[in-house]
Design a protein around this nucleic acid. Structure first.
Lengths: 194, 194
DNA sequence: TGACATGTATCTACTAGTTGGTAGACTGCT
DNA sequence: AGCAGTCTACCAACTAGTAGATACATGTCA
């Protein structure tokens, strides 16, 4: 599986990624990319044979990027609370500066039954990855006596992820990036053992 | 503003509503409705001049239904905790039986920048309504000493709504309605003053 | 009662524009 | 020579939406 792309292919993928974040799978077309990247529609097909393949490639790279990022957090930041804060802080920054106003897997999860199966598989994979990472952090924090979990680490992790995704939705609905922080900040405090 | 629809128009609107819940604004077409309701595409245009108008009508009725439902809960159920449980329980049932696997306003919020402005306005309106209702319930519960709020009722309400919406997303991603309950149940326990 | 009008609901047939995708030719680099 | 990358020109299918005819039910007036 080759994830290295030519410069133009990378540009197309990056454009597709931002279009996915704002409009979803059915909300953008090859014409949109064509215009943004200054290339003909046919040339996009040269790099990615189909829309499904393009989006799948975007997701594979997105997931890889996420795994690397989360692994780096787990490695470089010792305290579990700070690890969670690094995760939410990353998204707060992305939403605030508008560079990535939404997790594309959350976006595609909403459209799950209206997208190609191979794309849907990647979306499900991301949810599993993210929840596993969060559960591990929560479990470590609980073992260290920093977090007080009310349920299993897995359930707590799913709830955490759900709130973060819901916060992205709310920030978009209210047209206000600060809404994300406002919702997510208390989420961290609440986990602490008092 | 007339919200009474002829039987066929109501059937079209109800079909559009379920298509919106599963695929979103850009995920369905007049052809889908045409097939499901056994009517020609042109006849749909007789009842609703445009897609934007159709969806706006669906949202107006959806919001009205929601307001009536939430008002009934507030009126008939005395305890604030039971009121929240009625809200989440309603959605748990809808998701479990597949009748409404997603809040259409949450769905459309994700697509917010890719839908007509008049539709987007209704979506924003729903978020305001829902948060106001939740904030009122939370405030009443806090005043009665039942809930222990860590932040303002408004912030707590937004976080509550975000988790519920995120739980819908997760249930869809995992293809498992029980995930919704699993996430939302602890949310209620956590609010209680110990 | 009968004639005519009005309004609602439906249809077939059509439009212009967009969708994802293909064929084949041209360029320039190795 | 071969290949990666680009293009113009095209395609069939689909998109929301329109035009105009037809059916039928409900009036209202003479």
């Amino acid at each position: 599986m080759n994830t290295d792309l030519s410069p133009k292919a990378a540009e197309i993928a990056s454009c597709a990624r931002s279009l996915l974040a704002t409009a979803g799978y059915n909300g953008f077309s090859y014409a949109d990319i064509s215009e943004a990247v200054h290339i003909s529609k046919a040339s996009i097909h040269h790099h990615f044979p189909s829309k499904a393949e393009l989006v799948r490639t975007v997701l594979v790279r997105y997931r890889e990027e996420g795994r690397v990022g989360l692994a780096a957090v787990a490695e470089r930041i010792p305290a579990p609370l700070d690890q969670l804060q690094a995760y939410t802080g990353y998204w707060a920054a992305c939403i605030r500066d508008g560079s990535a106003p939404f997790c594309i897997c959350a976006m595609l999860a909403a459209e799950l039954s209206a997208i190609p199966a191979e794309v849907a598989d990647e979306v499900r994979g991301h949810f599993l990855d993210l929840t596993a990472w969060l559960a591990a952090v929560l479990e470590r924090g609980a073992a260290a006596g920093v977090f007080a979990l009310r349920t299993s680490p897995e359930t707590e992790a799913m709830a955490f992820a759900a709130t973060v995704h819901g916060a992205m939705l709310s920030a978009r609905a209210y047209g206000n990036p600060e809404v994300f922080t406002q919702i997510v900040q208390p989420l961290l405090d609440r986990l602490l053992a008092h």
